[in-house]
C-alpha cells in the first residue's frame, strides 16, 4: 500500500465564526477523518497557521509571509494509505474543507531508492 499526501489549500476566513459554528465545523472534520481511520486509511495530518516565513534565493532572502497566499495558501496536510492515486483521490471526497472553498492536491509519497 502506498502513502499519499493531501495538500489542502485556500479556505475562507473563519475568524468571524461563532464558537458554535467552529465546533460544528470541527465535528465535520472528526466525522470525515474518523471515517478514514475506521477504514484503516489514515496515517496522520495537521492544520497549519496562516502566518509563516519563506526562505528563497538559497536561503539568502527571508520574507515574513508564506510563499503562496489567498487561494494558494497551504492550510494543512493529511497523509493517507491507498493502493492507487485514484483510490486516494476518491478518499479525499467528502473533506469538510470543500464546503469552505478549499482545494486538495493529491500526491503520492515517493519511496526513494
Amino acid at each position: 500500500m502506498n502513502q499519499y499526501l493531501y495538500i489542502i489549500r485556500g479556505g475562507e476566513d473563519m475568524s468571524t465564526y461563532s464558537p458554535e459554528e467552529m465546533q460544528a465545523h470541527m465535528q465535520d472534520w472528526e466525522t470525515w477523518m474518523g471515517g478514514l481511520a475506521q477504514k484503516g486509511k489514515l496515517v496522520g495530518g495537521e492544520p497549519l497557521h496562516n502566518e509563516g516565513k519563506s526562505l528563497t534565493n538559497k536561503g539568502a532572502k527571508v520574507t515574513d509571509r508564506p510563499l503562496a497566499e489567498g487561494k494558494e495558501l497551504v492550510g494543512g496536510y493529511i497523509i493517507v494509505k491507498a493502493d492507487t492515486l485514484d483510490e486516494a483521490t476518491d478518499l479525499a471526497q467528502g473533506c469538510p474543507g470543500f464546503d469552505h472553498d478549499c482545494s486538495i492536491e493529491v500526491r503520492q509519497i515517493n519511496a526513494m531508492g
Binding site: M26, W29, E30, M33, G34, A37, Q38, G40, L42, G44, G45, E46, P47, G76, I78
Partner: peptide
C-alpha cells in the same frame, strides 16, 4: 481508530 484521531490537531479537541 478513535484514539488515532487524538494524534491530529484537526480532530484532537
Amino acid at each position: 481508530p478513535q484514539k488515532q484521531l487524538l494524534t491530529s490537531e484537526y480532530t484532537l479537541s
